[in-house]
Amino acid sequence: MQTLSSDQIAQLAAAIIATAETLGQTMSANAAQLMAQDLAEHPADHVAAALRACRRELTGRLTLAAILERTQAADGRPGRDEAWAIALASADEFNTVVMTDEIRQAMGVAAPILEAGDKVGARMAFLSAYDRLVTDARAEKRQTNWTVSLGFDPDLRARAIEDAVRLKQLPRHVADQELARLSYDAPPSADGLAIAGLLTGKVARPSEENRERFQQLKQHIEEAEEARLQREAAERDARIAEFEKRRAQALSELEKREGARA
């Protein structure tokens, strides 16, 4: 459905021509009209903001792609690199993270690869899925939906929610609802004590519904520790082997010099 009226399209075409001129480019009225029609399905304020961004940022020709890129970014969805940073933060279950639906879904694709230890492969899988999900969401005109994923660390929860309000990711009333759900005076849950016990060595039993997840996390920590020990052992063996190699070379050189003097 077309968002801009015919008068607004005419005004937009004029604004496109003016923007092109500020960039040292001559554009015909017909070309500007076609570009305006292609942009008509987007909110007028988003398109106007995109043109302002083009005037500030572009150093070459004004193109429809450049305007569309900035128009779509006005929907509040993070760029792919920012989205990956948010997704990576969510991999730490102690963090409270505010993310979009597309980040959550793309992380579902990348999480198994990340858990296997392949961070580069996980990032590639995430970006591919995220780009596709964002393209589909924008094509279907779905609004950006931010949700809160609470982490185990209570001290980080309120800070993450307030940051989301400051960044205009969450409206104030939604943030207030989330903050009302938090109880800082409540004693730690069985799950919280069990997770903390993995780090402190104090044994605690998780709740029945989260027992399997706890076991998986415990196994992940144990595997990571085992991998660290193996890596350190391999590095130590490599240093010893290098030392023995240099020692053998030094002895060989010494024997050669002694033989030459004899």
Rank of each mutant, 00 (worst) to 15 (best):
T144Y: 00
G117T: 02
A49Q: 02
S128H: 08
A20P: 08
V174D: 08
S183D: 15
F214K: 04
Q11R: 10
K256T: 06
E212N: 07
S128R: 12
L217G: 04
S6N: 07
F152E: 09
L88F: 05
F243K: 09
E162L: 13
Q11N: 14
F243D: 06
R205T: 15
P43W: 00
A175N: 04
T200A: 05
L4C: 08
L199I: 14
Q216K: 12
L179D: 06
V148F: 01
A129L: 05
E226H: 07
E225G: 05
G121Y: 00
Q33C: 06
G108F: 04
A260M: 04
R142E: 09
T63V: 06
A31W: 13
V134Y: 05
A129C: 05
E244S: 08
R77W: 08
E244C: 05
A262Y: 00
S128L: 11
S183A: 11
I16G: 03
V174F: 02
A74R: 11
L64A: 07
Q219R: 14
A111S: 11
A234K: 09
A180I: 01
M35P: 03
S128M: 10
H46S: 14
A260H: 00
A83W: 00
Q8F: 06
R213E: 09
D191C: 02
G192K: 01
L199R: 15
S28A: 15
T147G: 12
V174L: 09
I17P: 05
A160K: 01
A49F: 01
L150N: 04
V98C: 02
